[in-house]
């Protein structure tokens, strides 16, 4: 079994109003040094596959078809175990 972690975030240049709101709130709490916040989603997948190359290819296809909307989002895949 292989565990995959998928990180899905907004592309650079795509406005992230939720990240902006969090940034303002951090400033209000006194964390004046925060120079940018981007929100993201994270998925943990448990796969039957044992071959890392095949597992990565399968998760790549999952990202393209469902986990990310590539019009506005980018993704990163990390495999464990």
């Amino acid at each position: 079994m292989i565990k995959a972690r998928v990180h899905v975030g907004l592309k650079a240049g795509v406005l992230d109003p939720a990240g902006k709101a969090v940034e303002h709130s951090l400033h209000a709490l006194g964390f004046a040094g925060v120079r940018g916040v981007r929100t993201a989603k994270s998925f943990e997948l448990v796969l039957e596959e044992t071959d890392a190359v095949k597992a990565r290819a399968a998760v790549e296809a999952m990202c393209q078809q469902l986990l990310a909307n590539t019009v506005i989002e980018t993704y990163r895949i990390d495999l464990e175990g």
């Binding site: 406005l15 109003p17 709101a21 506005i72």
Partner: peptide
């Protein structure tokens, strides 16, 4: 259809 509907600007 092209594009995507994102979260409203003012959340």
């Amino acid at each position: 259809l092209p594009g995507v509907l994102m979260r409203n600007r003012d959340l």
